[in-house]
Design a protein around this nucleic acid. Structure first.
Lengths: 233, 233
DNA sequence: CTGGTTTTCGACTTATAATCGAAAACATGC
DNA sequence: GCATGTTTTCGATTATAAGTCGAAAACCAG
C-alpha cells in the first residue's frame, strides 16, 4: 500500500510563460530509473493514507505550502509495478502561486502539458488529478489553494486561465465567485503597473478550505423566501 | 486491503412506502458479531479493487443486476478494525428498482434513513456513498442505474424523489434529462391506472453507462456558433 | 490638462431551471 | 354518447445564473 501525490502549482516556465506545473522527482533506481515519478511511498502501519501522503510530501516540499490535499482514487492494477504487488492511493495536491518552496536536487516542477517520461502509471495518476482540479475549479472554491493569499481579479483570472487551459472572463469570474460568497475585497489596492492604469483592488478568498457550491442542484425546488426580499439598489 | 460496497436500490418497505435501501448482511462472527456490515472482503493478489468489488458482490446479489459500481474513497484509519490493519476501498453500487435479486439468508435491504447498528466504520462508508449518489443524480445520467429499463416520467420522478429525499417536479425532470440527451421516448405507452387517466408515455435512458453532463462549466466562454442556427419551431 | 493604460462595473443577451395551469387522453357511470 | 373525474403532458411565464461588451473610473507621464 502506497500513496502518490500529483502536486500542482501555477508558475512561470523558463521562457517566462505562466503554466500549470506538477512536482516530479527523477528515479535513481530501478524500476524505471531515469524516469520521473510522483512523490509518495509506502504507508506506515500506524498512519492513514491522508496522513501518509502529507508526511511523504514533506520530504519533497515545505508542507505548510501545500494548501490542499485530497484523494482522487485507488490505482490497483496487479501489474502496475513489475515485481511486488503494491496498491496506490492517488492524491491531488495544490501549492499557491507565490510559494516557490525549496526543492531537493532530484525534484523539479514540470509543465503538465509537456511532461518528461513518467515512471510506471504515474502519468495516468497525474492526468486524473489534473482533470479533477479542472472540474473542481468550476463548482468549488479550490482556487484559494492555487492563488496567493490576496490578489487582484486580473491575477486570479490568469491563475484560473492557466489551470483550466482556456481564457477566463474577469467580469464573470468576479461576479460568480462573489455571488457564491467565496470572494471578498480586502479594502486595499495594488500598486499600478509601470505603464500606469487604474490600480487594481485586492481580494481574498473568504474560506481557506474546500467548499462545494451548493452542488449543481438540478431538480431542487426553489426555496420559498419568507425572508424580506434581498435589498436591491 | 479490502473492498466494501454500499449498494443502493429504491424499493418498497414493509409498510409499502417507496424508500432508498442499502444492502447489508448480519455478521455472525467477531468483531462486531450481530451488527450489520457492507458486502465485501479481501482483495486477491491478481485482481484490482474494482474487479474485487464486483466479485465479492456476486456472493450476495446477482451481479447482472448491479448496474453501476464506482470507487468513492479509501478508508484507512489505523484503528478502524480492532486487530489487524486493513485498508478499505469504499464503493457505491446501484441496483434498479425492478431487479429484486435473490438474497442469502444473512443479507437484507435496509432503509438508509433507518439503519440497524452497523459494523465498524461501515455506516460512515454508506453515508459517503449516499451523498455521492445524491450529488451525481443532478449532473450525470446515473438515474439509469436505479430506474427500470423503461418507465414513465411519473415513475422516474418517484425514483429521483426517494433517492434525493425531496420532491421533484416531473416537468422539470423530463425537460432537463431530455435537453441533456439522456432521455428518449420508447414510443409505447403504459396502461392507465385503475382510476383511469391519460396513459403515460414510456421512456428509456439513451445511455447505459455513466456520463457526466458537460460538467458544471462555469468560466467557460460560450462557443462561437459558426453552424447555422439551431432550428426553432 | 491631455492622452495612454488598466481596472471596474453596469447593461444586455443567452442559457438553464423552476412554477403553474390548461389541454390531452384515458376510464367510468349515466 | 356524453358529462365527469383522473392522470399525464406540454406550453407559457418567471426566476436565476452565466457570458459578452463597452463605457466609465482611476491611475501615470509628459
Amino acid at each position: 500500500m502506497e500513496v502518490l501525490a500529483a502536486v500542482f502549482t501555477v508558475r512561470r516556465d523558463p521562457a517566462g510563460r505562466q503554466r500549470l506545473h506538477v512536482l516530479l522527482w527523477e528515479r535513481a533506481r530501478e524500476p524505471d530509473a531515469g524516469r520521473w515519478a510522483l512523490p509518495g511511498g509506502l504507508v506506515l502501519k500506524d498512519e492513514d493514507v491522508d496522513t501518509s501522503a502529507a508526511r511523504q510530501l514533506a520530504e519533497k516540499v515545505d508542507l505548510t505550502r501545500v494548501t490542499h490535499l485530497e484523494q482522487i482514487g485507488v490505482f490497483s492494477n496487479p501489474g502496475r509495478m513489475p515485481d511486488a504487488r503494491v496498491v496506490a492511493t492517488g492524491f491531488l495536491g495544490l501549492v499557491p502561486l507565490d510559494a516557490d518552496p525549496r526543492l531537493p536536487e532530484d525534484t523539479a516542477w514540470h509543465p503538465v502539458d509537456d511532461l518528461p517520461p513518467t515512471a510506471l502509471d504515474h502519468g495516468v495518476i497525474a492526468d486524473r488529478a489534473h482533470r479533477r482540479l479542472q472540474a473542481k475549479l468550476s463548482y468549488t472554491n479550490i482556487g484559494f489553494a492555487l492563488a496567493p493569499a490576496t490578489f487582484t481579479i486580473g491575477e486570479l483570472r490568469r491563475v484560473y486561465a492557466t489551470a483550466l487551459g482556456h481564457d477566463v472572463d474577469p467580469t464573470n469570474l468576479q461576479r460568480i465567485l462573489t455571488r457564491r460568497g467565496m470572494l471578498e475585497p480586502t479594502g486595499s489596492t495594488a500598486a499600478p503597473g509601470p505603464s500606469g492604469g487604474r490600480p487594481a483592488a485586492m481580494y481574498r478568498f473568504t474560506i481557506g478550505e474546500l467548499r462545494v457550491t451548493d452542488p449543481f442542484a438540478a431538480f431542487r425546488p426553489r426555496p420559498v423566501s419568507t425572508e424580506p426580499r434581498q435589498e436591491t439598489s
